[in-house]
Structure formats: structure tokens, C-alpha cells
Amino acid sequence: MNTSIKGNWILILALTLFSAPLVIMYGFQLIDSVSRPAPGGIIPQEWELTNWRFLWEPIDSARPSIWRVTFNTFVFASTTALLVCAFSITAAYALSRLNFPARRFFLAGLIMLHAFPTITLIIAIFIVLQFLGLYDSLMGVILVKAALELPFGIWIMKGFYDSVPWEIEMAGVQDGASRFRVWWELILPQVKPGLSALLIFSFLAGWSEFILPLVLAPGADAQVLATYMNAVIADDTRPDYGLFKAIGMFYALPVIAIYLLFQKRLMNIYGGGTKG
């Protein structure tokens, strides 16, 4: 251990230098949310929890409660994740295993959609939602976000399906099971690592989404944490940076927790395939 630290001190120094700004930023995000610095300074003067007051009292009368917004964000992120997973596991299976007309076209289209700058579609999406009566509703944003995440999800899941040996499928069919049962009972368990990674991944993507809710659901009823924060800081009468940082901290906590809990599974998404 000692020798390896000695031998790699240049590497460690370089990594420390490069990651220092990030660490300092996160550190002060936390410190500033529970303290008050001297005017113009950075050294905390006094420890206090007033910045976290948004948790137990409305910060002003016009805004919905933080818990309502958090609930919205959770519904938005988890419904998006479930939709993405449900469609990815079926569509990817079809693309990986079934021979249907225009399969190549769909594959090529998938890669293109994956690389597509979705923000350019925002006006078209706005009109479509307006037409469907889903504008300014959480449901509308969920559908849009899920649709935009799908190409990535399908592509990832297809990679996992591709690495499952054909013989398992043939054996299942020969054992008398229907194609659907073979998929559900024999193939799906082999791609579970990919599925759980995708579930977490798309949940996080939904959790941190900002532009779509901002443009497609600006009303108070469908507000999510990202747009809520935006509204707090955009309030030009009395910008409260301490409050903003505390909300930011609150917003980031689930993400940090998920990363800590599921690190290994998230890594799977780049590894692909089952072992053994």
C-alpha cells in the first residue's frame, strides 16, 4: 500500500488538483446551506438552519410547497423510468432477435435519434402536446421525456440481448415453452443487470430534467424541483442564495444516495452482458 502511494504520488497530486474545484464547490454548497458567511467573505460566521426553512414552511405564498414539488419530481422520474424500461425490454428484444420488415431501418433510425439534439424538436413537441391537451400537465412531460430517452434505452438493452446465446432460446422452445414464455422466463433474467442499470439511469435522467418541464409544463401544478429552483433564483426582487443552495442540496441528495447505493449496477451499463 505504502509503496503504491509513493510510486503514484504524481498521479495522485494531479488527480487532487483537477478534482479540487469540484470538491470545493460541493463542500461550500453544503457549508453555505447551513451557515451565514460574512458579507463579501466565504468564512462561515454563524451556523444556522434558516436556509432549510423551505422544508417546514412555504417560502412565499405564491409557491407550492416543496413536498408537493418533490412528489411531482418523483412521479415524473419514476414513471419515465418505468415507461423507458417497459418499452426498451420489448423493443430491444424484437430488434435483437426477431426478423421483421425494415429491421435495419429501425436500427439505423435508433442510432440517429440517440444522437439527435432533442431541443430542436421542442416547438413541434409543444404543438403536439397542445393539440392533445397534455400541455402544462405532468403526464405530457412524462410522455415526452420517456420518448426521448427510449433510443438510448433500446440501444443499451439490445446490446445486452445480443450477448445472450441463441441456444438458450432454442433450448427453451425445444423444451416446449412459447416464445413469450422463453423471453419472460429464460431471456429476461439474463439481461437483468442491464435492466436495473437502465432503470436507475433513466430515473436519474428524469430527476435532473429541466428544459422539458420548464417549457412544456410551466404551471404551478406540474412544477418539479429543477423548475422550482429556477423560479427561486429568477425571483429578482430578493435573490436568496443561501436558500437556493439549500434547495440545491436537497435536490442533489437522492442522486448522491442512488449513486452510492447502485454504483456497481450503473457500471454494468457500459460492461454489457451476463457473466457465467
Binding site: 446465446p165 441456444e167 438458450i168 432454442m170 433450448a171 427453451g172 425445444q174 429464460l186 433474467p189 439474463q190 451476463t274 457465467g276
Partner: peptide, 10 residues
């Protein structure tokens, strides 16, 4: 059928 790689369900 017995397959070359046995195709057991892992």
C-alpha cells in the same frame, strides 16, 4: 436437443 454449449439456463 443437447446443444454444443449445453445452453443451460444460468
Amino acid at each position: 436437443v443437447v446443444f454444443q454449449n449445453y445452453a443451460l439456463y444460468p
